[in-house]
Each structure stands twice: as structure tokens, then as C-alpha cells.
């Protein structure tokens, strides 16, 4: 959003989505006077101090993307492991001896652990459990601790 103008009864918002696109102008009209925001509005996420629940939320998104990308490795291992006795042995051998395979497995299990625990928190909040500010902070800490334990356990399992 680049421009914000206000008069007694109309509010005009100008959007310029990206280069080469036509600007879109939205005009809102009202019978009552509309007050434009006079305070400075900062939407640059990089300059805002993120509280723990925000970090847990963004990490849930990041691990989600990691799982989507990692899906190719999981499906490939699944395919080879079910293809034949030799295929199964090669997957087993890679997971027992290949450092890169272990690293990918641990990375995927870690992302899965975090996404799982943070996802349970979202489902709990949908049921109105701990969906206030204090509850959100408390459950964020639980997510960090439980995920960290699971990530360490996953590492022990893989190595």
C-alpha cells in the first residue's frame, strides 16, 4: 500500500502490487466521516521484534515448506524400499551407513516433530484451549521444549 488519502466521507487506498502491473485504487465511501490512520504504520516484519508465539508460528510455516520439499526424499525411499529385497536392503544400508541419508532423515524427522507439536497447539487453540495472550505464550514455550526433546531423540534414533 503506497498512498492513503482521506476526506470527510471517502477513503482512497492505492495498491501497486509489483512492477509492470496497473495500480489498483479502492475507494470506500461512508455516510460518517472516515478517519485516516495518523500514526505511522510499520509492516516491515524484518524490523519488528517477534515475540515467542510469532516465532513458533513462523517456524511452523518454515517446517511445513521443509516437509513439502523433503517429501521427494521420503517418497523415493518408500518407492525403493517396497520395490524389491535389494531395494529394501539399499535403503536400510543408506540409513545405517550413509551420512547424507542420515542427515536428510534427521532433518525431515526434526521438521516433522516441530510441525506436529506446533500443529497440535493450533488444533488445541481451535478448541479454545489457551487461546488468549498468556496461554499462547505458555503453549509456545511447551512447543519449543517438547520439539527440542523430540529432535534430540530423533537424532539419537538416526545415529
Amino acid at each position: 500500500m503506497q498512498n492513503l488519502k482521506s476526506s470527510k466521507s471517502t477513503l482512497t487506498l492505492t495498491f501497486a502490487p509489483c512492477d509492470g502491473q496497473v495500480e489498483r485504487v479502492i475507494t470506500v465511501t461512508s455516510k460518517k466521516p472516515i478517519k485516516a490512520a495518523k500514526r505511522p504504520v510499520n509492516l516491515d516484519l524484518g524490523t519488528i521484534k517477534q515475540p515467542l508465539p510469532a516465532l513458533v508460528s513462523i517456524t511452523h510455516r518454515v517446517t511445513g515448506v521443509m516437509l513439502f520439499i523433503g517429501l521427494i526424499f521420503a517418497l523415493w525411499a518408500f518407492d525403493v524400499s517396497l520395490s524389491s529385497q535389494q531395494g529394501f536392503d539399499s535403503v536400510r544400508h543408506a540409513l545405517e551407513h550413509n551420512f547424507f541419508a542420515k542427515l536428510v532423515a534427521w532433518g525431515l524427522l526434526s521438521a516433522l516433530a516441530w510441525h506436529f507439536v506446533a500443529g497440535i497447539r493450533h488444533l488445541a487453540m481451535d478448541l479454545h484451549y489457551a487461546d488468549d495472550r498468556e496461554g499462547g505464550m505458555r503453549t509456545s514455550k511447551i512447543v519449543v521444549v517438547v520439539s527440542a526433546v523430540l529432535i534430540v531423540l530423533a537424532g539419537v534414533w538416526v545415529w
Binding site: C18, Q21, R61, G64, F68, L71
Partner: peptide, 19 residues
């Protein structure tokens, strides 16, 4: 799940419609 999740992420962070 991935369709909906990535749709949410793209609509939040990728402002250029074509991209």
C-alpha cells in the same frame, strides 16, 4: 494439506500475482 498450507504462505508473502 500442502496445497492449503502453501497457498496460505504464497498469498501472505508473494505480492506479485504472476509469480
Amino acid at each position: 494439506h500442502a496445497w492449503i498450507g502453501l497457498w496460505t504462505i504464497f498469498t501472505d508473502y508473494v505480492k506479485c500475482t504472476r509469480l
